[in-house]
Amino acid sequence: MNPRRKKRMMTVLAVVFGLGTAVALVLYALEGNINLFYTPTELVEGKGPEKQKPFVGQKLRIGGMVVPGSVQRDQDSLHVEFKLMDTGPTVKIIYQGILPDLFREGQGIVAQGKLIAPNTIEAFEVLAKHDEKYMPPEVAEAVKGIKHEKPVYNTVKGDS
């Protein structure tokens, strides 16, 4: 092999090695920022054919409907707890902050946070759907077939 070809080959190998190293470092750095999407049923029962459950401390996103009557607000702080459901079990969400204006019971939401117990998530972000037509595809698939009814309030009729 002549010296010119040898020099070109060494340059090509160095560039390929450098690019491979850069890609490996980027993937390693992004590994901690990957958030997997779960529904409440997948969180409790496991996801996929292997029924793989997330581990405590894992970052994740969860989507579902806020269970009517489950929202508990602390009067002295911005601490809120509520339950989320799809077609099966419920999951408890703990959130510290201001909830979106569209947040209400029976509403579809997506929460992003960390799993602190097998069925409890400490959320750092809560997103409510924009209008009646919008719903993330994963949530729409999970809640297909659920009937959502408006809450019924007891009213007292007057003597008129």
Score class of each variant (00 low, 15 high):
M1T: 01
P3V: 06
R4H: 02
R5T: 13
R8I: 14
T11V: 12
V12N: 02
L13D: 10
V15I: 15
V15F: 08
F17K: 04
G18K: 02
L19K: 09
T21W: 08
A22K: 02
A22I: 12
A24L: 14
L25P: 01
V26H: 00
L27H: 06
L30V: 13
E31K: 14
F37D: 07
F37N: 09
F37L: 07
T39A: 03
T41C: 06
T41M: 08
T41F: 03
E42V: 10
V44F: 05
E45C: 06
K47N: 10
K47A: 12
P49Y: 15
K53Y: 09
F55G: 13
V56D: 13
Q58V: 12
L60N: 00
L60R: 01
I62D: 05
G64N: 04
M65D: 03
M65C: 07
V66G: 03
V66C: 05
V67P: 00
G69D: 10
G69A: 07
G69Q: 07
S70C: 11
S70V: 11
V71M: 04
V71F: 08
Q72N: 13
R73T: 12
D74G: 06
D74L: 08
D76N: 13
S77L: 11
H79S: 10
D86T: 05
T87H: 03
G88T: 07
T90Q: 04
I93M: 01
Y95V: 03
Q96W: 05
G97K: 02
G97P: 00
D101A: 08
G106C: 02
G108H: 06
I109R: 01
G113F: 00
K114N: 00
L115Y: 02
I116M: 02
I116W: 03
P118Q: 01
N119H: 00
N119G: 01
E122H: 08
A123C: 09
F124I: 12
F124G: 09
E125A: 10
V126T: 06
L127V: 10
A128S: 15
A128L: 07
E132Q: 07
M135L: 15
P136G: 02
P137W: 07
V139T: 13
K144D: 11
K144F: 09
G145Y: 02
E149S: 10
V152D: 11
Y153E: 14
S160T: 13
